[in-house]
């Protein structure tokens, strides 16, 4: 059996990679990928702890919910990115500093 600390360390590394991407990238798509990495780190933790819950399956069920939430978020975020590109002709979040009209 793999210990919980190993899973936690892997997910911490993935989370910090995602954090680095969110903070440092200047492309909205790459920031979105960073957010996905952070979400996946959280799901890994849910699954690792969910092994000790055989009757209720709390961890696994909420991991499923988190995956579905991530899908919904990504669809909306990509629609927003496309809209922003159509209006400003750039998707660098640092250059988008005016209101819609």
């Amino acid at each position: 059996m793999i210990g919980l600390t190993d899973f936690l360390l892997v997910s911490a590394a993935l989370f910090c990679t995602g954090l680095y991407m969110v903070v440092s990238k200047n492309n909205a798509v790459q920031i979105l990928i960073g957010i996905e990495l952070m979400l996946n780190a959280a799901i890994l933790n849910l699954v690792a702890f969910g092994r000790f819950d055989k009757i209720n399956n709390g961890g696994q069920v909420f991991a499923l919910f988190a995956i579905v939430l991530a899908a919904a978020t990504t669809a909306v975020a990509l629609a927003i990115i496309l809209n922003v590109y159509r209006r400003y002709k750039t998707i660098d979040p640092g250059k988008i500093n005016t209101l819609g009209d």
Binding site: N27, A70, A71, L78, L82, Y85, K89
Partner: peptide, 24 residues
């Protein structure tokens, strides 16, 4: 969901938003 859905969605968004994303 992730590999089949989200990544294909990201690729689509990337292709729709054109050359600007690559240059950035």
């Amino acid at each position: 969901i992730y590999v089949g859905g989200i990544l294909v969605l990201i690729l689509f968004a990337f292709m729709l938003s054109g050359k600007e994303t690559l240059e950035a």
